[in-house]
Amino acid sequence: MTVSTTRARHRAARRPSTPLTEFAAAASDQMGTVGRRTAVVAASSGLVVSMLGSPASATPGGDAGALPAVDTAALTASARAVLNTAPVVTAPADAAWTIDVPAVTAETPPPPPPVKVKAAAASRSTVRAAAAASTAAPAATNAAVPQSVAGNAVLEVAARYVGVPYVSGGSTPAGFDCSGFVSYVYAQLGISLPRTSGGIKAAGTVISRADAQPGDLIWSPGHISIYAGGNDQIDSPRPGKTIQFRAIWQSAPVFIRIG
């Protein structure tokens, strides 16, 4: 009797198949074709860059999803020619910039029109000064004026009337007698004196000639003058003469100080 030793065969166990596992297997099969050679065309310059891919299994580290490396050494001859003929812009080291500046001219504006001042608006001081100038007689151009006049108020006022004629009884710049002249000069300084030479002597104090100062008075019978220092005086002498600086002629002058 023959005995069969053939054992029964059993199908090996398999993982269950589902639509999801079939999709994953198909994707794995397609990954091997990623490394095919592709070309990128740059239409603007005619430059062709070749990209050599390798299978996913050839990338370092075994990363099946890594992109292939670009081989820049594989540039074509046409691409190199385009790069070599590209224009290069250069500027010399000593280049200079110039700017055209327009010429500028300055014009002087016209002077403003003169301002008209009405006579009614003139100040009182201006009117008084004009009146004094109109009444004062011009000083003699050849009159010798002593240095003592400078800085002496009495002599400075008296010197304005050099050249005014002698007028008997006169007490204005139109004409003076001796006492009218002295009293008028002192009145300009705010000092009121009598009208006659004798009255003026009585109003002052008699001093010595050694103590006399420019601006003091010199009296003699019937005449009075203003002492100008040294041996000089200023007075209105007599009819036919004018006010002037001259030497002291009196034989016995009396010096009078006012105030």
Rank of each mutant, 00 (worst) to 15 (best):
T6M: 06
T6H: 09
T6S: 09
R9M: 06
R11A: 12
R14Y: 13
R14C: 13
L20T: 12
T21G: 09
T21H: 00
A25K: 12
A27Q: 10
A27P: 00
V34G: 03
R37S: 11
T38I: 09
V40M: 12
V41N: 04
V41P: 03
A42Q: 11
A43Q: 13
S44I: 05
S44D: 13
S45N: 13
G46I: 03
L47S: 13
G53L: 03
P55V: 13
A58C: 09
T59A: 08
G61E: 09
D63F: 07
V70F: 07
D71G: 12
D71H: 15
T72R: 07
T72G: 06
L75I: 10
T76Q: 15
A79T: 13
R80K: 13
R80D: 01
V82H: 13
A86R: 10
P87K: 05
V88R: 15
V89R: 15
V89D: 09
A93D: 09
A95S: 12
V101D: 04
V101I: 11
V101N: 03
P102G: 07
A106M: 08
P110C: 07
P110Y: 11
P110V: 13
P111N: 01
P111M: 02
P112W: 05
P113A: 15
P113Q: 15
P114T: 03
K116A: 09
K116D: 00
V117Q: 11
A120W: 04
A120K: 12
A120Y: 07
A120F: 05
R124D: 15
S125A: 15
V127E: 01
V127R: 04
A130Y: 06
A132H: 11
A133N: 12
A133K: 11
T135F: 02
T135H: 02
A136S: 14
A137Q: 14
P138V: 05
A139G: 12
A140V: 12
A140F: 09
T141F: 00
T141E: 08
N142W: 14
N142M: 10
A144G: 04
A150N: 05
A153I: 01
L155F: 02
L155G: 01
V157L: 11
V157R: 12
A158C: 05
A159Y: 01
R160I: 00
P165L: 02
G170E: 01
S171M: 09
S171F: 02
T172R: 00
F176K: 03
D177H: 04
G180M: 04
V182T: 14
S183F: 07
S183R: 15
A187P: 02
G190P: 07
I191W: 05
S192P: 00
P194R: 03
S197N: 06
K201D: 09
G204W: 04
T205F: 08
T205Q: 15
D211W: 00
Q213T: 00
P214C: 10
G215Y: 05
D216K: 10
D216I: 04
W219T: 02
P221A: 15
G222M: 06
A228L: 02
G229W: 03
D232W: 14
D232L: 14
Q233V: 04
P237W: 06
P237A: 08
I243E: 03
Q244T: 08
Q244W: 01
W249M: 11
S251F: 04
A252V: 00
A252Q: 11
V254C: 03
V254R: 07
I258M: 07
I258P: 02
